[in-house]
Amino acid sequence: MAAPMWNLLVLGNDLDRWPVLAIQPRDQEVYEAVSTRLRRSGAGRITSRELSGALWPHAAGITVVMQGDRISHLQLSGSKVVATDAPPTTGLWRVAAERGRAVVLLMPPDTWDDTVDGPDPLATAPRIDALAGQRRLLGGLAAIQR
């Protein structure tokens, strides 16, 4: 099984920014395994309304664990998902993360081309919105541990 792609994004506006950890497994088998573990930890399907209103489902069983300026792993209820290729956090991501919470999103395997180094920032928001509209976006609001 290939390791998932880890991408760091910031969603919102100048007054309300949310740090986002978007995980995209490279194949359906890994997607299903991570999806099951995230659901057991409190993640749910995110709707367009929840996405546009930043009404993230609270995922009490998920913690984003940081080591320095990188994400080390997701601690889930009873297991963890190691961030083998997570990029370093950006200044904007760290500022948005000061509230101690991050949005964790699980993207279907076909969301971004894995030959590029992370998603195209200009294409990110419409693609995430489309996935929410199709009820294909799984995620939740997780705690951040430093």
Rank of each mutant, 00 (worst) to 15 (best):
D110V: 05
D113R: 00
A143V: 05
I46G: 06
L9P: 06
D110A: 06
A142N: 04
L138A: 01
G118Q: 00
V95M: 02
Q75L: 12
R99G: 15
V104Y: 06
P87Y: 08
P4K: 12
A96Y: 01
M107S: 00
V10I: 09
D85Q: 05
R94A: 05
G139C: 06
E98W: 06
I71K: 14
K80F: 13
A125M: 08
I46K: 00
S35L: 12
L21F: 13
V104N: 09
I71N: 15
R101Y: 08
R70W: 06
L55W: 13
T47I: 11
E29L: 10
A86D: 12
T115N: 11
I128Y: 07
T111E: 01
R136C: 03
L51R: 09
D114H: 07
T124P: 00
A130N: 11
A143Q: 07
S48K: 13
L9V: 01
Q75N: 10
P108V: 03
L55C: 11
L8G: 03
R136G: 06
S48Y: 11
V65P: 09
A33G: 03
L15Q: 15
W56Y: 12
G133C: 07
R146M: 07
K80S: 13
E32D: 13
L122D: 10
M1I: 06
Q67R: 14
G78F: 13
G139S: 05
P57E: 01
